[in-house]
């Protein structure tokens, strides 16, 4: 199973209880991985309210994942 590097920001970091994680997963898309994590950590936000970045670039939720990918789920932003 591929290992994925995860980094959590804002409320996701709080809900996961960690900022970074290396995770083995059988899920093959960003969307499916998020649902796995949502079940594990009880993330409040549905994927529809978020974006996803793979290797520091915005990607579609259908993006397939491979060994060593760095994945960040992006909650609604609130900078400025």
């Amino acid at each position: 199973m591929p290992r994925i590097e995860l980094e959590y920001f804002a409320q996701l970091g709080e809900q996961a209880g960690r900022r970074v994680e290396t995770r083995e997963t059988s899920e093959t898309t960003a969307a499916a991985l998020y649902e796995e994590l949502r079940a594990a950590y009880g993330f409040a936000l549905p994927a529809g309210q978020m974006r996803v970045a793979v290797n520091a670039a915005f990607r579609p939720w259908t993006q397939s994942l491979k060994e060593g990918d760095h994945v960040v789920f992006i909650p609604p932003v609130s900078g400025g």
Binding site: F9, A10, V72, P75, V77, S78, G79
Partner: peptide, 11 residues
Amino acid sequence: EIKRRVPIWKR
């Protein structure tokens, strides 16, 4: 645009 799409969050 910064407020709309740059990945920064405030607590």
